[in-house]
Every structure is written in structure tokens, then in C-alpha cells.
Lab assay of single mutants.
Amino acid sequence: GETKIIYHLDGQETPYLVKLPLPAERVTLADFKGVLQRPSYKFFFKSMDDDFGVVKEEISDDNAKLPCFNGRVVSWLVSA
């Protein structure tokens, strides 16, 4: 499998796309960081919350699996 991750960088209009050679349910924050090489950023991901619906959730645990929608991951990188 392959996972497409779209990421928005510090408010830039056009998002970036990276592809990881892993199925979406196995991709972790560490996998994503390894491709990006951007150490001083906070990582937020499109996520579903039972109370609020669609939210941007910050993930900082490198072992955390990334939230996935239709085989895609959507993220926002914010300068720390």
C-alpha cells in the first residue's frame, strides 16, 4: 500500500504532497517526520472528534498512528 499525506506549511496557500510506501493504517508520526526533515515544527492532523466533528489535532508522539480519511492524511505544520 501507499499513503498520500498532504501538508500545509505555515499558512502557505498551496499544500504539499508526499507519498509513503506504507498502508495508511500503519503510518506513524516518525515515518512522516523522516520524509520531511523539518525538526522545529508542530504537527497537526485532520481528525474526527466525537463531540466536535472534524478538528485539527496536535500529535507529538512519534509512535502515534496518523488519522486517515479515505486513505489520505491531511496535516498542518506550524513553526514551533
Rank of each mutant, 00 (worst) to 15 (best):
G1Q: 12
G1S: 11
T3Y: 01
Y7R: 01
L9T: 02
D10C: 03
D10Q: 06
D10A: 06
Q12G: 14
Q12D: 15
Q12Y: 12
E13Y: 06
E13T: 11
E13W: 08
E13R: 11
P15I: 01
Y16F: 11
Y16C: 13
Y16T: 10
Y16P: 01
L17N: 06
L17S: 15
L17Q: 15
L17Y: 15
L17I: 15
L17W: 13
V18R: 03
K19R: 11
K19Y: 10
K19D: 06
L20R: 02
P21H: 10
P21L: 02
L22T: 05
L22C: 09
P23D: 07
P23F: 08
A24P: 14
R26N: 12
R26V: 11
V27E: 04
V27Y: 04
V27H: 04
V27M: 04
T28N: 03
T28H: 07
L29K: 00
L29Y: 08
A30V: 02
A30H: 03
F32M: 04
F32Y: 06
K33A: 00
G34Y: 08
V35R: 08
V35T: 10
V35N: 08
R38G: 12
R38L: 11
R38A: 13
R38E: 14
R38N: 15
P39Q: 14
P39E: 12
P39K: 14
S40E: 12
S40V: 14
S40C: 13
Y41S: 03
K42E: 04
F43A: 05
F44E: 03
F45W: 05
K46S: 10
M48D: 12
M48R: 14
D49R: 14
D51I: 10
D51P: 13
F52S: 15
G53W: 07
K56Q: 09
E58S: 04
I59Y: 04
I59V: 08
S60E: 09
D61L: 02
D61R: 05
D62V: 03
D62S: 02
D62K: 00
N63S: 11
N63A: 10
A64I: 07
A64W: 03
K65P: 10
L66T: 02
L66C: 00
L66P: 05
P67C: 00
C68Y: 10
C68E: 04
C68F: 11
C68L: 13
F69C: 10
F69N: 08
N70D: 13
N70I: 06
N70G: 10
G71Q: 02
G71E: 04
G71H: 09
G71D: 07
V73M: 02
V74G: 03
V74H: 09
W76A: 04
W76T: 05
W76K: 03
L77I: 08
V78H: 12
V78C: 11
V78I: 10
S79C: 09
S79H: 07
